[in-house]
């Protein structure tokens, strides 16, 4: 599904990704763990198309298509979803309007019929219930005045609505209490299946207690320095990055 080969990228002339090679097959959940400043967020932004990063080498393909040549909205339509580490507040934009606009934009791009207001309401209510969120969330402005936990739940709600093929979760666990963490994990687990892959980027092991990864990659200094099974996450937690990577 996702294939990254020798990817290098820099920001403001400073090289952050120094040759990443990684493959996430369909149906698998991979974790990327790494200390602060290792390039985790840069990788997520580069994969989702944020401006300001210069790709200096390597490739990233999504089901064989060159991901790096696409606009952010084209990547989303193709099925890539980034759950933001810091979800952005949009004052003046209602959450329901935002979700419906996004859903219909993606459906249009995929040649599917758009959903009308009634269908949208029905669909969003079902997803909200499954995520144990308050319906009130739809009426509020996107992320405005949301607590940290609400913002992350809202990311998971967007993911549930847009049904991506590949979800990149950028430190979705940061700032979450255990209840919210479980909701987020349940949201991801509910989507697991042969057509869904995820790249779970995290600093800590605790999210991986709830989302069991198929593979764990250790990212340090802009490179994958070690890859292993779920037990690698436990090892990192116990021994620390420096020792495991050594």
């Amino acid at each position: 599904m996702l294939k990254i080969e020798n990817l290098t990228a820099e920001i403001d002339g400073k090289e952050i990704l120094k040759g990443i090679t990684l493959e996430v097959p369909a149906g698998e959940v991979h974790a990327i763990m790494g200390p602060n400043g290792s390039g985790k967020s840069t990788l997520s932004y580069v994969l989702s198309g944020r401006e300001g990063y210069e790709i200096t080498g390597g490739t990233a393909t999504f089901n064989g298509i060159d991901l790096l040549a696409m606009e952010p909205e084209e990547r989303a339509a193709a099925g890539v979803f980034l759950a933001f580490q810091y979800p952005v507040e949009l004052p003046g934009v209602g959450n329901a309007n935002f979700l419906r606009t996004a859903l219909n934009a993606i459906r249009r791009a995929r040649g599917e019929v758009e959903v009308d207001a009634m269908q949208f309401l029905k669909l969003s209510r079902a997803k909200i219930k499954a995520l144990q969120m308050s319906e009130d969330m739809l009426k509020r402005n996107v992320n405005v005045g949301f607590s940290g936990g609400e913002k992350k739940r809202n990311e998971v709600l967007q993911m549930a609505m847009l049904e991506p093929k590949l979800a990149i979760l950028d430190e979705t666990d940061s700032g979450l209490d255990i209840d919210a963490l479980k909701v987020v994990a349940d949201g991801v687990n509910a989507m697991r299946g042969p057509e869904f892959s995820a790249l779970v980027i995290t600093h800590y092991q605790r999210l991986l207690d709830h989302i069991t990864p198929d593979r764990v990659h250790v990212l340090m200094g802009g490179r994958i320095v070690k890859t292993g099974g779920p037990e690698l996450a436990l090892e990192l937690e116990a021994e620390g990055y420096a020792k495991v990577a050594a």
Binding site: S48, G49, R50, E51, G52, E71, P72, E73, R75, A76, A77, F81, L82, F84, P87, V88, L90, P91, G92, V93, F98, T101, A102, L103, A105, I106, A109, Q158, L162
Partner: peptide, 29 residues
Amino acid sequence: DEAQLFYLRARGIPASIARAMLVEAFLTE
């Protein structure tokens, strides 16, 4: 705001529509 624009586009909303949404949001008040 570039961050707001990217957030909308990362959800599949084409840049022109995303800009229109942000302009409309700006006018709301």
